[in-house]
Simulated assay, not measured.
Amino acid sequence: MSTDHDPTALAAAAAQELARLTGVARHDIALTLGSGWGGAADVIGETVAEVPADQVPGFHASGVAGHSGTLRSIRLANGSHALLIGARTHFYEGRGVRAVVHGVRTAAAAGAKVMILTNGAGGVDPAFGAGEAVLISDHLNLTATSPIEGANFVDLTDLYASRLRDIARSVEPSLQQGVYVQLPGPHYETPAEIHYLRAIGGQIVGMSTALEAIAAREAGMEILGLSLITNPAAGMGDDPLNHEEVLEAGRAAAPRLAELLGRVVAAL
C-alpha cells in the first residue's frame, strides 16, 4: 500500500526523512507551537537543525500567519532531543483530518513519548484574561470528526495528562486550567455560540489541538496542552474579533510564554 493511503506508513516515512535531514535519529519530546508560542524555540535548547516542513513527506508550508512552517530539532540540556513543529495544518484548510494530525503522528514515529500542544485561543470563561497562558484540562471536540479510523476505540480519560499538568503547575503555580473547545473555523464564533459553549462547559475556544490530542493519544503519547488567551471570545468583550488581534496578543506575550515553556520542558 502506498503511503498516500496509509497515514501510519506516511508518518513513518516522514520520521525517516526527518532523521536524515536533521541527523538526529530519535526525538524524545515534541511540541507544536501555535500563535504566540514560537519564541519558545529559541530558549528551550540548542538548535541542531531546522528544515522547511514541505521537504518532509506529508507536510505542507504553513498556510496561517504566525506559524513558522519549519520543523526544528533541538538538543535539550539533558542531552535528549525535542522536535518543534511549526507547520500546523488546520482543519479549515480543507486538506482533511489526516493532514491535521500528520505532525503528531510523525512525532510519535520519530520516538516522542510526550506531545506538547500549544495554541492561541479565545477566552470563554471571563476568569481568563487576554495574554494569560492556561493549561488545557480537557476538551470538547465539536469538529464532527475524528482522526481515528476504523473500529479502534481509544480511551480519552485523562487525555491531557494530569501528571504533566502537575509538573507544569509546580513550575508555575499561577497557571489556571480550563476546558478547550475545538470548532472547525475559519470564522469566529457568534455570541450565541459562545453562550452555548459556556453552557456546555467550554472555557477556551479555538480551531486546533483537540484532533491532534486524540491522534497523539492513539499513538501512545502523553499530552500537555497550553492555550494563550489572545482575546475575549465573541460577546465577552466590546470589540470585534480579528486575526491581527490574535497575532498582536501573541507578540506581546511571546517572551513570557517562551520562558514559561522553557521551564516546563526542563522539568519534564
Rank of each mutant, 00 (worst) to 15 (best):
A14D: 00
A14S: 06
A14K: 00
A14F: 00
A15I: 00
Q16T: 01
E17K: 06
A19C: 00
R20C: 01
R20V: 02
L21K: 03
L21I: 00
T22A: 01
V24M: 10
V24C: 13
V24P: 15
V24D: 12
A25V: 08
A25W: 14
A25R: 15
A25C: 10
R26L: 06
R26I: 02
R26W: 11
H27K: 03
D28A: 14
D28S: 15
D28W: 12
I29Q: 12
I29F: 13
I29G: 13
A30T: 04
A30I: 02
L31K: 08
L31R: 08
L31C: 15
T32N: 05
T32I: 14
T32Q: 08
T32D: 06
T32H: 01
L33M: 07
G34K: 02
G36V: 08
G36W: 10
G36T: 08
G36I: 05
W37C: 07
W37Y: 15
W37F: 15
G38C: 01
G38M: 00
G39H: 13
G39T: 10
G39V: 11
G39P: 05
A40V: 07
A41N: 05
D42R: 11
D42S: 14
D42V: 01
V43K: 05
V43Y: 10
V43S: 11
I44E: 06
I44K: 07
G45D: 04
G45K: 05
E46T: 13
E46K: 12
T47H: 09
V48C: 11
V48R: 15
V48S: 13
A49P: 10
E50T: 08
E50C: 04
V51I: 14
P52E: 12
A53C: 06
A53H: 11
A53Q: 07
D54Y: 06
D54N: 10
D54I: 00
Q55D: 12
Q55K: 11
Q55M: 12
Q55W: 08
V56A: 06
P57A: 08
P57K: 02
G58E: 08
G58T: 04
G58F: 03
F59K: 09
F59C: 06
F59V: 04
F59W: 09
H60K: 05
H60S: 12
H60C: 07
H60E: 11
A61R: 11
A61L: 09
A61C: 03
S62H: 02
S62F: 07
S62Y: 03
G63Q: 10
G63W: 02
V64I: 09
V64T: 09
A65C: 01
A65V: 02
G66R: 04
G66W: 07
H67P: 00
S68A: 13
G69E: 12
G69Q: 10
T70V: 14
L71Y: 07
R72M: 11
S73I: 01
I74E: 07
I74Y: 04
R75G: 05
R75L: 03
L76C: 07
L76R: 11
L76N: 06
A77D: 14
A77F: 05
N78V: 01
N78H: 11
N78M: 03
G79N: 08
G79F: 06
S80A: 14
S80Q: 15
S80M: 10
S80K: 15
H81Q: 10
A82K: 07
